[in-house]
Design a binder for these strands. Structure first.
Length: 870
RNA sequence: GGGGGCGUGGCGGAAUUGGCAUACGCAGUGGACUUAAAAUCCAUCGCCGCAAGGCUUGUGAGUUCGAGUCUCACCGCCCCUACCA
């Protein structure tokens, strides 16, 4: 039964809290696993509790909520969980600032964010909440660490790493921005040689690259970014022989990586990175020592900071020593150069100035020879070299290196072969080197192992023990969890390394007194598997049950920001593959479909506290209600595009919900203050009007139109939601509202409501609006569904409205008639009119433009237009 | 330097496979209702033009009966990435 005796205005502030409480009471959003409904896993990237919920969250979670509610109405059992990525630096910084503790700050923020998310009416199964700083969660992170260790995927090694002086911790490569800045605090990152913990993600480099092809539901852009980051290059390792101080070959080899073995004959010098360990040995006590040291020092100080500043002049120095080129026994000088990177390839490079722009510039600067070895087709000037196996020309006449495909010249037995990347010539040179035992084909990746240790307190402790006898030993599984002490006082700079009661332990293998690892794990390790825990969040025996995880995973739709294109998404793909190999799960990729939503900006700028241009969701809810906010943020732009906040747009949506609310009251006859028709304004008058009054012809026509529109719009909205075009889905609902407004103006209530068959259509229209908007404006829809229409069950458990394309089809169509490409007339024909009828009608309509000329061509596009050419 | 994307009214944006460009909304303008305002409703709303008509999807060409959409060149903007050998 309807709760509404009379019209009541739309009041989001009373209905939203009401339904939120009612849904919670009824457990409406708990995941259901019963029945034979197919499973659907809708997931949004979980928030970091760094403050209040912001508009970016509202957008992310509104999209996810529409997807989940829609899929539920389409007959799926939907898993739609939420949690918090709770460990990390900002909590420590905030605690220091507020003289509090990271835990207190974090959990207070989580409470506030949880309230905000509830006020927005998102349909999360709150019982499955995962908070990464809860020991029930992070203990399984430690357990997984041990499993990866057993699998040979954990390594402690010394290497040059990124050190952020401001955060006082090391960072993974992925967490250093392009300009050498820390991803969190934007300080300049320093390079340091340190012993650290790594996950061997490089073991999966090839699979991570190959499987991108399986991800047809991912944006091309994200896949491209990952492919670039993994950075696979095919080429060869080539062994050069080091000469002693007198220039005589020794037994020592220096290996380089090259993608262009075909240019090996053009190698006229050899380069080492300034940090290369050999450099000091080569120059110690020589006359070159001072100059080399100068370049090394310059490179070290410039490294991270200056690298970003455009084209930097290359800097180098001769070491005084030589190597022998294995392909032609040339003796070439060893230089150091600041553009050679220690952590790519081998830190040593064969320089081919005619084929590499950097080498070219270096050679020009230091007067080194630049013999051409691969020349482009049609270069007349070099034709004389085409059959020249020996070197006759030392200087190219280009102003830059040529690195494209071409013909090999001055290259001994290979002269005349096609050269270039992965060319026949390259293969031939590699084969020759291989037969001499001086080279081999190789694949090189840019991807580095993932540095996961952090010298910070607020993180998941690494479960390892340093024993003076046994070396590094894992904490036994039975001793887990290694509990993070909650009473560390970060305001005094205290860390785990200051707590003997934390690190003084006995070795689990030999019983000697030993030292527990005090580093914690990168927070990205926590976010690399939280989506797996959601499938079985209360498991106390395992991180998740294999059957549970396999039944829900992979995630059907993942939604989050593009900023995680590499970091989080690559790490999660790695975790999935590694855990598959541990035997914990049975799939290769975690996220089947990915939607990267755009940012919410204000006047073209990102909203941020420091800029003071933040529009707070809570304020908008207070003024317009959560439903209006949700619909607005879906309406203003397609989800993957950036969106510029405009308050007048939100007012517009608020008006639309109001207008549709009133219209639905009109449709079901509950309105007393109707604004859509000029009929009697009270029920007594309506009742006294003739019950047998018939609908006018205009009203009948309008009724037919609106019913047709109803079927068209349901089809359109369904298709648009499937494609995440929420903005056009809402526009289509608005079109139906406009058509309904028209209809209501013609069809005044006494006649309309007295007509039982028409009244049924009116109710169907009302139900259609409510169902179509239910995923986006859930409270608005529920109030109308239950309290106006009098249903006793939830709108969110209804089936998605059906539509019949046949009923959407008009019986008459208007076609445009073009003459020579210009629209000159419009004709109305029956929808099923034969083509010759249409042609005749079209020619008659544009007779004036043809003026007796014979039409050369006549194209009829069914349902669209007729094109006449004269 | 490399990779990806984009360019449509005053604004956000639409146009599914090459088929009536500017849907839907915002802002604006005029009107009704009101003592008045708000709210609501009606009308109008790409540009030039009194009009007839002409022009219009960054610019220029091309393919086509037909191009916002496809091809080529150019201009402009955004994002990612970067001495990766």
């Amino acid at each position: 039964m309807s709760h509404y005796e009379h019209f009541a205005p739309y009041d989001p502030h009373s209905i939203e809290p009401h339904w939120q409480a009612a849904w919670q009471e009824a457990g409406a959003d708990a995941v259901r696993t019963e029945g034979d409904k197919p499973y659907y896993y809708a997931l949004e990237m979980f928030p970091y509790p760094s403050g209040d919920v912001h508009m970016g969250h509202v957008r992310n979670y509104s999209i996810g909520d529409v997807v989940s509610r829609y899929k539920r109405m389409r007959g799926f059992n939907v898993l739609h969980p939420i949690g918090w990525d709770a460990f990390g630096m900002p909590a420590e910084n905030a605690a220091i600032k507020q003289n509090s503790s990271p835990a207190a700050w974090t959990y207070a923020n989580i409470d506030r964010q949880r309230q905000s998310l509830k006020r927005l009416g998102f349909s999360y199964d709150w019982d499955r909440t995962v908070i990464t700083s809860d020991v029930d969660y992070y203990r399984w992170g430690q357990w997984i660490f041990l499993k990866l260790w057993e699998q040979g995927l954990v390594e402690r090694k010394s290497s040059p790493v990124n050190w952020c002086p401001s955060c006082a911790t090391v960072l993974a490569n992925e967490q250093v921005l392009g300009d050498g800045e820390c991803w969190r605090c934007h300080s300049h990152v320093q390079r340091k040689e340190l012993e650290q913990w790594f996950f061997k993600i490089t073991n999966y480099a090839q699979e991570l690259l190959d499987d991108l092809d399986k991800l047809s539901g991912w944006p091309e852009r994200v896949k491209q970014m990952q492919a670039n980051w993994i950075g696979r290059s095919t080429g060869a390792e080539v062994d050069f022989t080091l000469c002693d101080a007198d220039g005589e070959p020794t037994d020592e080899l220096i290996t380089v990586f090259t993608t262009r073995p075909d240019t090996l004959f053009g190698c006229t010098f050899f380069l080492l990175a300034p940090e290369h360990p050999l450099v000091q040995k080569l120059v110690a006590g020589t006359e070159q020592e001072a100059e080399v040291a100068e370049v090394v020092a310059a490179a070290a100080s410039a490294s991270a900071v200056e690298r970003s500043k455009g084209e930097r002049e290359k800097l180098g120095a001769f070491t005084g020593r030589y190597v022998v080129n294995p392909i032609n026994d040339d003796k070439v000088p060893i230089w150091i150069a600041d553009y050679v990177l220690m952590d790519y390839g081998t830190g040593a490079v064969m320089a081919v100035p005619s084929g590499d722009q950097r080498d070219f510039e270096f050679a020009r600067k230091y007067g080194l020879p630049i013999p051409p070895v691969v020349i482009p087709e049609g270069e007349f000037f070099f034709n004389s070299l085409k059959n020249q196996p020996n070197r006759v020309m030392f200087e190219v006449l280009w102003n830059e290196a040529y690195d494209g495909p071409g013909t090999m010249v001055q290259s001994g037995e290979f002269t005349g072969m096609p050269g270039g990347k992965d060319s026949e010539g390259s293969a031939a040179v590699i084969a020759k080197l291989e037969s001499m035992g001086r080279g081999r084909p190789t694949i090189n990746f840019r991807l580095r192992d993932w540095l996961i240790s952090r010298q910070r307190y607020w993180g998941n402790p690494i479960p390892a023990i340093h024993c003076p006898n046994c070396g590094i030993v894992p904490v036994p599984e039975a001793d887990l969890p290694v509990v993070l002490p909650m009473d560390i006082d970060v305001t005094t700079g205290e860390t785990l390394a200051d707590r003997p009661e934390f690190y003084d332990v006995t070795c689990p293998q030999c019983g000697a007194s030993a030292h527990r690892e005090t580093d914690t794990m990168d927070t990205f390790t926590c976010s690399s598997w939280y989506y797996l825990r959601y499938t079985d969040p209360h498991n106390t025996e395992l991180p998740f049950d294999r059957a549970a995880v396999d039944s829900w995973m992979p995630v059907d739709q993942y939604i989050g920001g593009i900023e995680h294109a590499i970091l989080h998404l690559l790490y999660s793909r790695f975790f999935t593959k590694a855990l598959r190999d541990v035997g914990l799960l049975g799939f290769d990729e975690p996220f089947e479909n990915l939607l990267t939503q755009g940012m919410v900006k204000l006047n073209g700028e990102t909203m941020s506290k420091s800029k003071g241009n933040v529009v707070a969701p809570e304020d908008m809810i207070a003024r317009f209600g959560a439903d209006a906010l949700r619909v607005y943020i879906l309406f203003m732009a397609p989800p993957d595009k950036d969106l510029d906040w405009l308050e007048s747009g939100l007012e517009g949506i608020s008006r639309f919900l109001n207008r549709l609310w009133r219209m639905i009251f009109d449709l079901v006859g509950a309105a007393c203050e109707n604004t859509f028709y000029e009929g009697p304004r009270d029920e007594a008058a309506a009742a006294s009007a003739s019950a047998s009054a018939a609908l006018t012809p205009e009203a009948t026509a309008a009724a037919r139109t609106v019913l047709r529109e109803r079927h068209r719009v349901v089809g359109k909205v369904t298709e648009d939601i499937e494609r995440f075009n929420f903005n056009t889905a809402i526009a289509a609902i608005m079109e139906l509202a406009n058509a309904t407004g028209n209809y209501l103006r013609f069809a005044a209530p006494p006649a309309r409501l007295a007509d039982a068959s028409q009244h049924a259509v009116d109710v169907e229209l009302a139900e259609t609006f409510i169902a179509l908007l239910a995923p986006m404006a859930p409270h608005w829809a529920e109030e109308l569904w239950q309290n106006l229409l009098g249903h006793s069950d939830s709108v969110h458990q209804q089936d998605w409205p059906a539509f019949d394309p046949a009923l959407a089809a008009a019986d008459e169509l208007e076609l445009a008639v073009q003459v020579n490409g210009k629209v000159r007339a419009r004709i109305t024909v029956a929808a099923d009119a034969a083509e010759d009828v249409v042609q005749a009608a079209a020619l008659a309509a544009v007779a004036a433009y043809i003026e007796g000329k014979e039409p050369k061509k006549l194209v009829v596009v069914p349902g669209k237009l007729v094109s006449v050419v004269v």
